[in-house]
Amino acid sequence: MKAAAFAYERPTDLNTALALIAKADGTTKIIAGGQSLGPMLNLRLVEPDTIIDISGLAELKRAERDGDELVIGACVTHGDVEDGRIPDVTRGAMQRVASAIAYRAVRNRGTIGGSLSHADPAADWVSSLSGLGARITLRSAAGVRNLPIENFITGALESALQPGEIVEAVRVPVMTPSAHWGYVKACRKIGEFAHAIAAVLIDPERATARVVLGALETAPIVLSDASALFGGRVTGDFKQHFDARVADAILIKAGVANAVDRHIHVAVLRRAINEAAA
């Protein structure tokens, strides 16, 4: 299948782009690497009048430390993260996540900002960056705002992006040396979309546990204080204290009615916790 016709605009700087986007109507789409939008265009699931290509914007292709955060431009690719072309503040966690997104040829063009804009609950960055406690920077011609990732994703394919706004960057906090990270997804084959995702960031020294249950039918469940999963207290032997019944109850409360689905999500969570403990 071939895409329906569209007009193409390629601004060369961010301000021009924002001005264009501010004028855009509902039939305009923004493209970066095009690895999500491309298939949909080819299948004619999406038929925009105009596509604005932001992949050339240098402002969105940088990564630098800003205090305790790494600021990653929206057009940095999964491959850039995988290959270590950006600084590592997560002790390899992001690199491992990136290297398992789709396939190499896709990662060389797919971008972190594009993936988040798409707001797919099964996408790796949606859950993993929520797990890492990252924030997202949204910019429009009118200004800029920052949101925690979990507040940005509002549902399946739904985000807090307002008309005229684009994802400018992701701000990832530096992972503490004592933190334990686990990230597991259930796929039937490599590169397939995930049926369940779990991300855990546990720091026994600080007695904190952050847990994400993702690839649900809607936005991920983000537990910024997940101590309830570990008997109410996060300690060095958290793995032994993991209580699957609590996880199951959380899923029920979130509306996951199917017992098989819950079983799979809990099993994936257990694996992520085991990985974090290893």
């Binding site: 605009e9 601004p11 072309r85 060389n108």
Partner: peptide, 20 residues
């Protein structure tokens, strides 16, 4: 950094709305 193949063009493209 950025998508392979991107960022090589120096000229902006601004389509005229009538062209499409």
């Amino acid at each position: 950094l950025g998508p392979a193949g991107s960022g090589n063009a120096t000229n902006p493209v601004v389509s005229e709305t009538t062209a499409r």
